[in-house]
């Protein structure tokens, strides 16, 4: 089981969100596979030196997203929901964000071409280290 969680004090995201995002990322990119066990809520709290409520909340949110399952008395596992489902979920979220961009662009009276050009520019910036 490979699981790396790095918490940043400089991040504006609350700690439970940081934990959630990183576990989700590990599941989506395949570091964590369906059926892999996750550290217990209390063990993770100890390892990260955060409160139990923080890790509990992160797990609860991931459970809501159907990314992990909690089996009473046995612990937490990466959900059996398949990778296509996970990718689909992610695509759906991305599409929602794109819709938001489109709406916002219309309000600012930007053309489709303007938005595409802007996006291309940002893509290139993102790739240069």
């Amino acid at each position: 089981m490979i699981i790396n969680i790095i918490l940043s004090n400089a991040s504006s995201d609350p700690i439970y969100i940081q934990i959630m995002n990183q576990i989700r990322q590990s599941i989506l990119n395949g570091d964590l596979k369906a059926g892999d066990s996750l550290p217990s809520i209390r063990q993770l709290a100890k390892d990260l030196q955060v409160s139990v409520i923080t890790t509990k909340r992160a797990y609860e949110e991931l459970e809501k997203e159907q990314l992990i399952d909690t089996v009473v008395g046995k612990g937490c596992f990466v959900s059996g929901a398949n990778k296509d489902f996970i990718r689909e979920q992610r695509m759906k979220r991305l599409e929602e964000k794109m819709m938001e961009i489109i709406r916002e662009s219309k309000e600012l009276s930007l053309s489709q071409q303007d938005v595409i050009e802007h996006l291309t520019l940002l893509f290139e910036e993102e790739q240069t280290p």
């Binding site: 209390r42 063990q43 709290a45 100890k46 030196q49 139990v52």
Partner: peptide
Amino acid sequence: MLDLLADMMQ
């Protein structure tokens, strides 16, 4: 001490 306390909280 944080570790000792977290141990207890397991």
